[in-house]
Design a protein around this nucleic acid. Structure first.
Length: 419
RNA sequence: GGAGAGGUGGCCGAGAGGUCGAAGGCGCUCGCCUGCUAAGCGAGUAGGGGGUUUGUAGCUCCCUCGAGGGUUCAAAUCCCUCCCUCUCCGCCA
């Protein structure tokens, strides 16, 4: 959610920022409505003040005097109700629109509207050249008998997968290995709830925009979280933090659930795009002035992890029009996938500035009044995609796959061989 | 799932239609005082929004006593719905 003060003081800032996302926002109309709501509320407040002082008098009056005072108070009450009803209606209409507006875009976010407009910042690691035709992860998963999407489809439908044997062990190794790194970097490890209230989804900016992407449990008014970002962000909702506590950094592990509505026909094979996967996610609460630096720090941790896995990657600055609602700026790390002959997203980190903090009411004490903190999130390990990248990049001519050295102590094996 | 008890400021806790954004205590902050410390004395100490102001401070108004509705001239207090916590029983990893 954006700051109303910005709408009042410089609506053009909002208009221009939304334009970078390819959105045309009638800021003039919004500003006028907001001003009208404020006027109505102001008038109602003044009448209310009169009503309250009259009410205090009534308590001490008797007989005819009291009767007349109550009559005047009744008329005041009626006018106040009328004003508040009008303000309430307008307000509901205003916020319905206001809540859909995404965050202001950081000036340094890449220009453009789509994925193709991402700005490549750097490439790291050499893409492998095989002396044979490399297999894709689906084929490798099958031939090694470590990923089973066929039986998963029978059991739960398309876009599910079983991790089996050494792939299952690989998941646990990845989680433990990454958590060790993150704890060392000062993050507090967390295992988070996957069922969340609407408030958490609204607070993180997934609602109202991405509602169709989220699984719903109507009987209990709960939703399956698409990422632990949601439960980590809402962890400090309604709190006023001490500035000395900041930055607060978490590493959350959870399963993630996504309906993937509207992606029919996209990435249909294997486990690249599935309804359920496990992920270690980083999340930070910072002072406003520190969030840019924190964003780079998170990216640094992501690069360190991907680097240790010996996966070739590139870093991109995501284009303004391709940003999620809450992000002001986003870096993606795209791993090299030989089967696609392309780089594709394996991590993503966003600076959401005060957008989530405002909705979740996460503040810090500050001289002259409390201030909203900034929040940031970033993928440490999206298990499924990392497994794919490992299989495809480290496959050997004999059909086996070598494991990166960093994982050996966590795995208890250094390669996966065909059965 | 069954039965019961509760949600009030940073914490504890009073409050049962008007003088209550809220007694008292603890904690915290500032000041005074006392060789030091402790004790003592005094003052301050919730959040959000609006108005005034170039801005800050100040002044002022409104809202918030778990959330949302309702009754009333007037609600922390009465009514309804929901959420949460605790205790006992049941069930369960």
């Amino acid at each position: 959610m954006l700051d109303l003060a910005t709408l009042r003081a410089s609506p053009d800032t909002i208009r221009l920022s939304m334009a970078r996302r390819g959105l045309e926002v009638p800021v003039g109309r919004l500003a006028a409505t907001e001003a009208e709501i404020r006027e109505l509320r102001h008038e109602a407040d003044n009448l209310r003040a009169a009503q309250r002082s009259l009410g205090r008098e009534i308590a001490g009056l008797q007989g005819e005097e009291k009767r007349q005072a109550i009559e005047r108070a009744t008329s005041l009450a009626g006018r106040i109700k009328e004003l508040n009803t009008r303000a309430g209606d307008l307000s509901e209409q205003f916020y319905r629109e206001w809540h859909t507006l995404p965050n202001l875009v950081d000036p340094s976010a890449a220009d453009g509207l789509t994925e193709d407009d991402s700005q490549e910042l750097r490439r790291v690691g050499e893409t492998p050249s095989f002396g044979f035709e490399p297999a894709d992860h689906e084929a490798l998963g099958e031939s090694l008998d470590i990923i089973d999407t066929k039986r998963a489809a029978k059991m739960a439908g398309s876009r599910f997968g079983y991790l089996k044997g050494k792939a299952a062990l690989l998941e646990f190794a990845l989680i433990k290995w990454s958590m060790d790194h993150l704890v060392e970097a000062g993050l507090v490890p967390m295992v988070t709830p996957v069922l969340v209230r609407e408030m958490a989804l609204f607070g993180t900016g997934f609602f109202p925009g991405d509602r169709q992407q989220v699984y719903e449990i109507p009987a209990d008014d709960l939703f399956l979280a698409a990422t632990s970002e949601i439960s980590l962000a809402a962890y400090h909702a309604d709190e006023i933090l001490e500035p000395e506590q900041l930055p607060i950094r978490y590493a959350g592990f959870s399963s993630c659930f996504r309906r993937e509505a509207g992606t029919h026909g996209k990435d249909t094979g294997g486990i690249f795009r599935v309804h359920q996967f496990d992920k270690v996610e980083m999340f930070s609460f910072t002072r406003p002035e520190d969030s840019n630096e924190e964003h780079e720090r998170i990216l640094g941790l992501e690069e360190k992890l991907v680097g240790e896995l010996e996966i070739p990657y590139r870093v991109v600055n995501v284009a303004a029009g391709d940003l999620g609602a809450s992000a002001a700026k986003k870096y993606d790390i795209e791993a090299w996938f030989p089967s696609w002959n392309a780089y594709r997203e394996i991590t993503s980190c966003s600076n959401t500035t005060d957008y989530q903090a405002r909705r979740l009411k996460v503040r810090m004490k500050a001289p002259g009044g409390n201030r909203l903190v900034h929040t940031l999130n970033g993928t440490a390990v999206a298990v499924g995609r990392v497994i794919i990248a490992l299989l495809e990049n480290h496959q050997q001519s004999d059909g086996s796959v070598l494991m990166p050295e960093a994982l050996h102590p966590y795995l208890g094996f250094d390669r996966i061989d065909p059965p």
